[in-house]
Write a protein that binds this DNA or RNA. Structure first.
Lengths: 142, 142
DNA sequence: GTGAGTGCAAACCCTTTGCAGCGCC
DNA sequence: GGCGCTGCAAAGGGTTTGCACTCAC
């Protein structure tokens, strides 16, 4: 979830990069900024279809790529069948329910030291890391 | 990479579960146990095609699923186009080169406390976690 | 002998691409 | 008005499935 100011910031960011604003683009970005979930491209498409009956999936995919390349959104690297996206690009981790697929954000004191240690051990030049936790969500434990 | 004893152990494990051993199955498992890489299903298929000219990709996929359900191998959850597999099921993390895709294993003092903290924060019942580091491998830094 | 495993091909799903027409700047 | 974006449909790549035949037990 992001405050509404984030949408404005995102719009300005795109404008400054010379990327045109279209109704579809605005809708996708707006949806991503206000949702707490981590939708797939298809979920975004199905949600916005009501407002834009003629919108195509290709448009959703194209714009998700544009936003990702602009650094406005992040593609989640889970081994799911389809990719998921989120507008929250701040440092945080994810917990995934292995039963229902529900994903929650989770902040944790950043373990940046793992990057340094890994860099020394392997010679890699590391620029990011991510942590994924798997288990059962509250609902699915019942 | 796993010692050859692991292959024997894996074979015994399958036998004890009543899973039949076939030449194809043996080849796939053997290949996964001795390789240090993290091959995709297609890479396994292409490698074994020489020995089994009639083998089908479906057989590779079917058996990877069988092995995975038996807990003998692990499917890597990277956001790649295609899944990768490894026979090393012991606790370890992965470093991925964002340029060439090269993957290396990396052991780190287990951060199990993250599981406890996350469990408390979210109510999830957590049973595993994984860490992924992204950067440039030694070769690609040149 | 029997049922699990194989091979083949078709089907499926997700994602990308080519292209003509539309519309944002 | 120009060029970037859209929508449509077709293509592409990875993975799964249905089915008849084979072979491990």
């Amino acid at each position: 979830m992001m405050p509404n100011t984030s949408l404005k910031k995102a719009l300005d960011h795109l404008k400054s990069q010379g990327i045109r604003m279209t109704p579809q683009r605005h809708a996708i970005l707006s949806y991503l900024c206000q949702t707490m979930s981590h939708p797939t491209a298809d979920e975004i498409y199905k949600t916005l279809e009501k407002k834009f009956p003629n919108m195509s999936v290709a448009t959703v995919y194209n714009n998700l790529r544009v936003f990702k390349e602009s650094g406005l959104i992040r593609e989640l690297p889970f081994g799911d069948d389809s990719s998921r996206f989120e507008a929250n690009v701040s440092e945080h981790y994810h917990i995934i329910c292995k039963n229902c697929g529900h994903i929650e954000d989770f902040t944790y004191p950043c373990i940046t030291d793992i990057e340094e240690i890994a860099a020394k051990a392997t010679g890699f030049k590391i620029d990011s890391h991510c942590v994924e936790l798997h288990g059962l969500c509250v609902e699915c434990q019942k």
